[in-house]
Design a protein around this nucleic acid. Sequence first.
RNA 1: GUGGCUGUAGCUCAGUUGGUUAGAGCACCAGGUUGUGGACCUGGGGGUCGUGGGUUCAAGUCCCAUCAGCCACCCCA
Length: 413
Amino acid sequence: MTAVKPVRGTYDILPEAMRAHRHVVDTARTVAARYGYDEMSTPVFEFTEVFKRSLGDTSDVVTKEMYTFSPKGGEQITLRPEATAGIARAFISGGLANQLPLKFFYTGPMFRYERPQKGRQRQFHQIDVELLGVAEPLGDVEIVAVGAQILRELDVLERTTLELNTLGDPESRRAYRAVLVNYFKSYSNRLSEDSLARLDRNPLRILDSKDEGDRQLVAGAPLFGDYLNEYSRDYFERVRAGLDALGIAYEVNPRLVRGLDYYTHTAFEFTTRELGAQGAVLAGGRYDGLIETLGGRATPGIGWAAGVERLAMMVSEKPKAKRPIAVVPAEAEAELDALKLAQRLRREGFTVDLGFSGNLSKRMKRASKINAAAVVILREDGLARDVVTVRDFETGEEEVPLTAMADRLARYQ
RNA sequence: GUGGCUGUAGCUCAGUUGGUUAGAGCACCAGGUUGUGGACCUGGGGGUCGUGGGUUCAAGUCCCAUCAGCCACCCCA
């Protein structure tokens, strides 16, 4: 029996869920296109090295969440845990550096070996937007604006909060990191076990700890703002000015940090309280060092990723399937004529349901059950007489000439 | 990976202090009546009670293990 169920953390997307899923992705793709972002795609797996180098050897994703394997005992391959690394790799291997700036929209499945929860699967789907080759704050502003607009059109924006922070440039970050590590080391006996581990890997994360003892220490910790150099400080101001100009509301959250190594300057996150602990719905930031880390020519970049499942859960208006027009032969002798009529309507662009069996009563029941907008009933002599009966389930029925049928049905399209 | 809660038909749930062939509603199928659907009537299929052990004369009901989901931590989309 164990073989006949999905692998832990995976699930089947049946038609109803798939409509919600597609609604999210289609909306995102459409909005992104209005900003000039074109869809692209990369393989679902890459050499493990691509993720190790871009995400960082010590990141949680790399150390414990990757699906890594060696097909036929050969090279090490990893199912992508996120999209940016692959896009950056494609940018380098495709020699795209002379086409900057580049704007990409992306969507597809991602894989992380985590303990499943609602809104957190081992195979899940993301939408991504990336802007490469722009080092100006206006790039950051546009990226955030695309995300906000997608959330707005999905009608979930007002149920999220945009949190914003700066991680500074590498120089500022190094300086702050050193000070921070020093500070926490002097209190290492009071630090929680989790944070003790973070001290080596990603000390900035301690700022976001939920442990009560940690929070007390964090309250007295040095502030990143005091260690930002002038360039970084000014950069952040200009990003904020751009968001203000667009009327995009945000809260500066000095404790907002990113788990992946490649981020610099702007970091942001649209969060919600509707999804429990999985509150991050759309998050990203600037990654100016990534391309270089992967072996390409230094190229600035910024982007975000959003969880399709999480967004789909937040969308309250579940998209409905299109109501078909049912074609029903009134008697067995009309079956082939019904077949031809259905074919004709489909060629004209109508969504048509044609049953495979049953008498008139049974077919009508079915038409009603599948929520048909109308039924076209065809008698044996219908085609010969050039008439069909169109029955609207709400208003009744009427007999119309064959030539007028399409016009009559147009209202249901 | 840690801690906790849960697990009975497709779905939502009942199942008394362990005791004869495990139930309901909805859904599904068939028939009837509407005689071209929706309502209604009748009947039917479907569960090795997550799985595997154990205790017992007897377990859905007790014990252990395991799997899965959910919640929190962790992490993140």
